[in-house]
């Protein structure tokens, strides 16, 4: 079986769930080979959990400056791994960083690139949902090593324990005239909540939440469900909630098992980022709100009455179990 490269998405300490999703998808095409880009020692820490999810080899692309420059160390690592493994495909997460790395790698390889796939079959055909959900498109790469970016949450992660071989890639030193230096980093403010594109449940608030303080109701429901908090563009623009939690065309695309929209009318830009969710629940005062057009369960009512009752019921249910 050919190798299939998987770029490991991580924060230095933990491997993100989306990586395990990629490993599960990679097994449809061949033997998953995980590529870890980070500071020295990172791959060693991740090897066991990667092998438990089916990685038959782990490439360590490590250097002190790997995290200090944007994009290029990752692209260098992937290019070296492609030259070494001649893989059937390269899989990355369709996050902002992942899309950019995929694009730059495809340019170096002069290879076909398919971004934001929601599925991948054993012949390498990927499924994408385009134009805000109006078309399902199945595509394949016809030239070069396929570079595929999968939407987080699209494929179920699976445990598949194997023994992983560790391989080392020697990262070249970064050319500071061709790379941007990261001089400061401020990562998520999500605290103990799961990341938006990792979560199986997302609870989002919109303009109807009315203010930053109103988001406590959203957060309490998210916490009762063990979910992430999202926000519509209207809520973010109004300053109710930080931009990094924005769901929609210009924010994140999510496809959790359960999406609860509180006080969100359902502008097309928002729907584009969440309509592939498995189950959608909406609460809105306005019976004409477009969000009701695609909600599996729509409640016409005041979110400040409905959401706390739901939170209480969920918490009670969890306490019993």
């Amino acid at each position: 079986m050919p190798d299939v490269l998987v770029l490991v998405d991580h924060d230095g300490e933990h491997v993100y769930k989306s990586t395990y999703e990629l490993l599960a998808a990679a097994r449809r095409l061949g033997d998953p080979a995980a590529v870890v880009v980070g500071t020295p020692g990172t791959a060693g820490r991740f090897k066991e959990s990667l092998a438990r999810h089916g990685a038959t080899s782990v490439y360590a692309a490590e250097s002190g400056e790997a995290g200090e420059f944007l994009a290029t160390p990752t692209v260098d690592a992937l290019e070296l791994a492609v030259r070494d493994a001649s893989p059937a495909a390269v899989l990355v997460c369709a996050t902002t960083d992942g899309r950019e790395a995929a694009g730059r790698l495809a340019a170096r390889l002069d290879a076909g690139l398919l971004i934001d796939a929601v599925d991948l079959d054993s012949s390498g055909v990927v499924t994408q949902i385009v134009f805000g959900g109006s078309y399902t498109v199945r595509s394949e790469v016809t030239h070069g090593t396929p570079v595929l970016a999968l939407r987080p949450g699209a494929v179920e992660p699976e445990e598949h324990p194997v023994t992983a071989v560790e391989r080392t890639l020697a990262l070249p030193s970064v050319d500071p005239a061709a790379s941007a230096r990261i001089t400061a980093r401020r990562t998520g403010l999500a605290g103990d909540r799961p990341a938006l594109n990792e979560a199986t449940v997302v609870v989002s608030g919109g303009r109807g939440v009315g203010g930053a303080q109103g988001f406590e109701v959203v957060e309490e429901l998210a916490d009762a469900l063990g979910g992430a908090v999202g926000a519509s563009r209207a809520a973010v623009d109004a300053g109710y909630y930080p931009h990094q939690f924005q769901v929609g065309q210009t924010g994140k695309s999510v496809s959790p098992q359960l999406y609860i929209a509180l006080g969100i009318s359902g502008a097309i830009q928002h729907l584009a980022g969440m309509q592939t969710s498995k189950t959608i629940v909406a609460v809105n005062k306005d019976p004409e709100a477009p969000i009701f057009g695609l909600a599996d369960c729509g409640v016409v009512g005041d979110l400040f009455a409905v959401a706390p009752q739901l939170t209480e019921g969920v918490a009670a249910r969890r306490a019993v179990r």
Partner: peptide, 26 residues
Amino acid sequence: RTRVVEAVPRPPRAAGIRITDDGSAG
């Protein structure tokens, strides 16, 4: 470097059940 195998318009996601809150919707 890619080829579309198939493009199918997606049926609009159908609305499901609708509840009007009478104090017990939660």
